[in-house]
Design a protein around this nucleic acid. Structure first.
Lengths: 238, 238
DNA sequence: CTTAGCAACTTGTATATACAAGTTAATTTA
DNA sequence: TAAATTAACTTGTATATACAAGTTGCTAAG
């Protein structure tokens, strides 16, 4: 492993192992190569490997057992809405299709779902898009996302259908979600939502407002999600 | 720092710093002593300190800045329902009172809120209790908790009013939540909930079913929460 | 054949060290 | 005076090493 890039080695190794788990090169139930073996294959020392593994363990990709090894758990379950990193949605990945209602476009911030905005955020405007997620031919999520228009070359020209927004941000732009805040509410469907979800007036809907913090100082991502949890409860791991 | 106990030093230091932040010895906005200073005061080396700080940072107690130091963020916001560790509820801690509806008692498992149970879990039975959380004199949460009856001496005789269940489990029994899964749903209030929350029929209610994994192998904690999010949205950090 | 114990693995904890990189403030230079 | 440099801090990354502790399977004793 060469350090020619400014990306730390433990992060590179994390990405490699993560990819291998996602691609089922290491499948659920498998035991990862031991830390010492990984040291040899990646030409680093144990603390470096341990840092990569510790992140994988924390995110649920593996489970470490003293004396045994690192057991692969597969892609963490969850739909990327309640999980910690917001990076994956394994459950129903096969069945969950994403339709873009409004393609990513540069807009002024209309609002940020009750989260206050800073001056400089308002100034640059934002990438805005709306998506409808369909599970087993039934629409279950409707969400809008706003991302500040700052130093994201060729962002609107990317293909976003059935792509993970957070995977792209992480691998292409080196932007990672490091935390955030969210508000959850149970509401009753308004006319627009009744239309999207094809439900009757008075139907309970789950609403989530999120403000996500990234490793870029002062760079926040805002999203609002509506979910018809009667069709499919919002399932997540933590 | 002596290593006479089997509890690792990095964990002990984590607990100390965490306590100091909770007691506002280190207040919001303060900068923690530098890693090297902490090394001296706790008689350990930097990697050990860094492990403690890294956990505090991950849980939101502090924020690390390269070149500056570790800035204290205070107790992580959230009500302990959506936050990662489930250990704290800072927001409204002053205003949030907890009433025990059903005191902790040993019961057989009636069910575990749609989570399947293992044989040995059913065998030992569980501690069961119900609580009602009141914010500004208005009931906002109603929750039931089930904990397997295994090796928890004097559990039922403890005082649980306005105590953090997870703090007690961690400090007294060395049990930590290391992850879990949850299902969120928007439902309409049934008669029992209408009574608790004093709302009309058809009122939307947020329901959360949780299965929490602990550092004790095979030891899970189950809880079900109902929230009248119209009075106070479920706010959490991650 | 069965079992106890040991050896060879695994991960967990901790030390000591080194240098890179970001921040801040004092100092030097123009 | 004002700007540039430097020095002294901070955290971030990485190496090399050592031993503790849990797991597994082989081996030798009964």
């Amino acid at each position: 492993m060469q350090a020619k890039t400014p990306i730390p080695q433990h992060k590179q190794i994390y990405e490699i192992l993560r990819k291998h788990i996602n691609e089922r090169i290491y499948a659920e139930g498998d035991v990862l190569p031991s830390e010492n073996e990984l040291c040899v294959t990646h030409h680093v020392t144990r603390p470096t490997i341990r840092k990569a593994l510790s992140r994988l363990a924390h995110e649920g990709y593996i489970k470490k057992k003293q004396g045994k090894g690192s057991i692969v758990m597969g892609q963490p379950k969850g739909i990327g809405i309640l999980s910690l990193t917001g990076t994956t949605w394994a459950v129903g990945k096969e069945n969950l299709t994403t339709t873009i209602i409004v393609k990513p476009e540069i807009r002024t911030w209309e609002n940020a779902f009750s989260f206050p905005l800073r001056e400089d955020e308002i100034e640059v405007g934002c990438f805005y898009f709306e998506r409808l997620r369909i599970l087993n031919k039934q629409p279950v999520f409707y969400d809008t996302t706003m991302i500040p228009n700052r130093n994201l070359p060729r962002f609107t020209s990317r293909n976003w259908e059935n792509k993970s927004l957070f995977d792209t941000l992480r691998t292409v732009y080196q932007i990672e979600i490091i935390g955030g805040e969210q508000r959850l509410m149970a509401i009753t469907a308004d006319e627009k939502l009744q239309n999207f979800f094809k439900v009757k007036p008075g139907h309970p809907i789950l609403q989530v407002d999120r403000k996500m913090e990234t490793n870029r100082e002062g760079f926040f991502i805002y999203s609002q999600i509506f979910c018809d949890s009667s069709k499919s409860p919002l399932y997540g791991t933590f």
